[in-house]
């Protein structure tokens, strides 16, 4: 069971309260009619599917109901951070450095 920190409720709660909502920071095209087929394919279908730290959206479905973003390592399933939707991508280097156990 994942434990997920909701940045709005400021509580760490079980996974069952949350729904996953796919990769984060995928920006809607400002002028959709100008997009080529290749660009549509990229926007609609191509995802990073990264093996490691992954920027993703979650929704606190059975709580405040709001969407937020998270960085989770897809190999260990460990959350590096969560942050409100709309904030810029946190810098990965500082996150991974902070979460490494001290040597």
């Amino acid at each position: 069971m994942l434990l997920i920190h909701c940045p709005y409720c400021n509580e760490t709660l079980p996974e069952a309260e949350f729904t996953y909502a796919g990769e984060a920071h995928i920006v809607r095209p400002p002028d959709p009619s100008a997009l080529s087929d290749d660009e549509w394919e990229g926007f609609l279908f191509i995802r990073s599917n990264v093996r490691g730290p992954h920027y993703e959206r979650w929704r606190h479905m059975h709580g405040c109901g709001r969407f937020f973003n998270a960085v989770r390592d897809t190999v260990s399933d460990r959350f590096l951070t969560t942050y409100p939707a709309g904030q810029p991508r946190p810098d990965l280097a500082s996150l991974t450095a902070a979460s490494e156990p001290s040597k």
Binding site: M1, L2, Y20, E56, T74
Partner: peptide, 13 residues
């Protein structure tokens, strides 16, 4: 499971 992962485990819920 609902989230992407490479962990080959998955969750108990």
């Amino acid at each position: 499971d609902q989230y992407t992962s490479y962990s080959q485990r998955g969750g108990l819920p």
